[in-house]
């Protein structure tokens, strides 16, 4: 295996050269670290190298997508019929909801017009597939298969059919990285749907929990409250469901209550996310309109 005879063949690296090279590279790394943490100068470099990493992601993703393709194309007629009827039923249900929604939307615009408030514009949505997830358990980062070529931009909101998933932190040319709302470094301005109470939902590092650390002990919040995006942070359009409060602990001597919530989106099970272009009128392209309704009507 590792025989001593290989010593003759490969001479030992000369000491100082190795040390010097290491020192230089270490200094370079530290320089990169410092620059990367403070400024965005390195974005272009990141994107350039990211383009080389893209094929790796594709190869890694290939077995899974091939498997999906195989199961799809070898599905029996029976299964297909079952799925078809299930989808048809689902569509019926969604359509019914959509009608209610359309009526509500019309009413909302009319009321807003009466109040002379600016009408809420609908958002354009595109479905994008998750290619890989971060290997680092402390960073909840995913890579999705749309990039700046498709109009993706930094800070763009990502949702799935049930609620907010996260936002884009780095838009590459062909793929982008997104941070999930459960990442410990992610904070999201939300409001309680019941009474409009505004607060901030911070990721906990667990996929199934968000923390609401800035709620006073006497705040009007209770278990089962739905949290929706408030739209105040600028990144997320208002009104998308985020999480449901599952535990409220009020400790008398502490200034803040300890409140946690369960994200509406199944953050560790999703395969697709929807990217939102807020304010751009909804284009009726393939999947866009159908998925938008599923995300918005949530009762």
């Amino acid at each position: 295996m590792v025989s001593a005879s290989s010593n003759n063949q490969h001479r030992a690296p000369s000491g100082p050269a190795l040390g010097l090279r290491f020192l230089l590279l270490a200094c370079l790394s530290i320089l990169l670290l410092v620059i990367d943490q403070r400024q965005n100068y390195l974005d272009i470099a990141r994107k350039a190298i990211g383009a080389f990493v893209y094929p790796l992601h594709v190869v890694v993703d290939a077995p899974i997508s091939t498997w999906l393709w195989i199961t799809e194309s070898t599905a029996t007629r029976n299964e297909l019929q079952l799925e078809n009827s299930r989808l048809r039923a689902e569509r019926l249900l969604t359509n019914a909801r959509l009608q209610k929604y359309a009526a509500l939307e019309a009413e909302n615009t009319r009321l807003r017009a009466m109040l002379e408030a600016t009408p809420r514009s609908s958002d354009r949505i595109r479905v994008s597939e998750i290619m890989s997830v971060s290997a680092n358990p402390f960073r909840h980062v995913v890579v999705v298969d749309k990039g700046t070529r498709d109009g993706v931009f930094d800070g763009q909101a990502m949702v799935d059919a049930n609620g907010v998933v996260g936002q884009v932190i780095e838009a590459g040319l062909l793929s982008s990285q997104g941070i999930l709302i459960s990442d410990p470094d992610h904070a999201l301005p939300v409001e309680v749907n019941r009474n409009g109470l505004r607060t901030i939902a911070v990721g906990s590092g667990e996929f199934a929990r968000l923390d609401l650390p800035f709620l006073a002990n006497n705040a009007d919040i209770q278990e089962g409250d739905l949290l929706v995006t408030s739209g105040l942070g600028g990144a997320f359009p208002a009104g998308y469901p985020v999480a449901v409060v599952d535990a409220v602990k009020r400790i008398p001597q502490e200034p803040f209550a300890s409140v946690s919530a369960i994200p509406s989106a199944a953050l560790n099970q999703i395969r697709e996310v929807m990217l939102i272009w807020p304010g751009i009128a909804a284009e009726t392209d393939e999947t866009a309109s159908a998925s938008e309704d599923a995300g918005d009507v949530d009762e």
Binding site: H10, R11, A12, P13, L18, R21, F22, L25, A26, L28, S29, I30, L31, L32, L33, I35, D36, Q37, L42, A45, R46, I49, G50, F52, V53, L56, H57, S134, A135, N136, R139, V141, V143, I169, E170, Q177
Partner: peptide, 29 residues
């Protein structure tokens, strides 16, 4: 070690940084 040492490690580290979305230079260092 003559062919693959710190230089290779640094380049591979940078690729890891990009792939995992960590601070640029973290894995490299």
């Amino acid at each position: 070690p003559r062919s693959y040492s710190v230089g290779t490690a640094w380049v591979v580290g940078i690729v890891l940084d990009i792939a995992h979305g960590t601070l640029l230079g973290q894995y490299a260092l």
